[in-house]
């Protein structure tokens, strides 16, 4: 190895990190403009979550916990939106909760995106106060309520997939402090822990609460988490009242929770953006959506970013060994 060669390798190893930042920046931005549409094959972990929700009906119920903060929004938010879409398509009532105040806001944003009828393929929201006259007339059952609502002259917006009645199809319960205790408390009564929802509507009066009074009446809890908060559902929900639990966690966390799948403590798991993309693919295959969403689009970005990082690791190793630095105690660093 000549001195000139060693110098070249050393220069390569000491490359200004701003070049690396630039490379990552380019591969993150470009796929948003040039779609690749790479295939996403669903794994068993995601398929089991999807399959369970796909068996639920209007007399069942699902909990969706927005147990993350904006830091992991890119990974967790598409999971929540996909699960909401699936549940609303099947008229499965959804309880939405959050373990942090920030999660409550993100849940509101997730619900708002599903209720945005300006975009085709979403659902038309009917707020609790809007269907008060129908409630007073005794229309609490979903089918009779929808029939009465439409008979009153309310037309489904063009492109919308259906009506979603607040209090019948979903309840945004929001954030409560000390969520581990809240889960334990919901084992006996959901309404006792949440007397009102985030908009101040009376939760005990909601029709979905009449059929699902506590966690024993809930068929699945999907906790979307960017921290170990997801474990509360396992420790206090699954272990205490046998609540079936599914995880939607970030990619770096996913490796931690495989033991819980094998032990049967959780039914499945969406891991990172990939997990969300797999759920979107399953929904499209199942005919619930016409097209995949943001997670699937993001997989192009992630593919390129992973390739660039792997290439950087390979190049770093080539330079390290070719330059003979593995025989030296220290590399002259200028980083």
């Amino acid at each position: 190895m000549s001195g000139m060669n060693a110098n070249t390798w050393e220069k390569m190893l000491n490359i200004d990190r701003r070049w690396i930042f630039l490379m990552i920046g380019v591969v993150v931005i470009v796929p948003f403009f040039i779609r690749m549409g790479l295939p996403v094959v669903p794994t068993d972990e995601v398929r089991s979550v999807y399959s369970l929700i796909d068996t639920l009906e209007a007399d069942d119920a699902v909990f969706v916990g927005w147990d993350f903060d904006p830091g992991t929004e890119a990974e967790n938010q598409p999971m929540g939106i996909a699960v909401l879409r699936h549940a609303f398509s099947r008229h499965v009532p959804v309880f939405v909760t959050a373990v942090s105040p920030l999660g409550q806001g993100l849940a509101g944003q997730g619900l708002a995106s599903v209720f945005d009828t300006r975009t085709p393929g979403n659902f038309a929201l009917v707020r609790w106060a809007d269907w008060e006259p129908f409630r007073a007339a005794g229309h609490a059952g979903r089918d009779s309520l929808e029939a009465a609502w439409e008979a009153a002259g309310n037309a489904l917006p063009e492109g919308a997939l259906g009506w979603v009645f607040e209090g019948v199809d979903f309840a945004h319960l929001g954030y409560q402090p000390l969520f581990s205790l809240v889960i334990l408390g919901m084992g006996s009564s959901i309404a006792a822990q949440y007397p009102t929802d985030v908009s101040g509507n009376p939760v005990p009066e909601m029709p979905m609460l009449h059929a699902h009074k506590n966690l024993r009446d809930v068929d699945l809890a999907v906790t979307l988490a960017g921290s170990s908060a997801c474990m509360w559902c396992v420790i206090y929900g699954n272990a205490k009242v046998g609540l079936p639990v599914a995880f939607g966690v970030t990619a770096v966390m996913a490796t931690d929770y495989f033991p819980y799948i094998q032990s049967g403590q959780i039914v499945g798991m969406m891991g990172g953006l990939r997990g969300a993309a797999e759920y979107e693919v399953l929904e499209t295959e199942g005919g619930y959506t016409q097209a995949t969403g943001n997670a699937y689009r993001g997989m192009d970005v992630q593919s390129l970013a992973h390739i660039v990082i792997i290439l950087l690791v390979i190049l770093g190793n080539i330079a390290f060994f070719a330059g003979g630095f593995h025989r030296k105690t220290a590399l002259k660093a200028r980083r």
């Binding site: 990190r17 990082i309 980083r335």
Partner: peptide
């Protein structure tokens, strides 16, 4: 993502 890429290049050695 940016810092991980830089760290992987510099520290991930066989």
């Amino acid at each position: 993502a940016f810092y991980i890429a830089s760290a992987a290049f510099r520290a991930f050695r066989a």
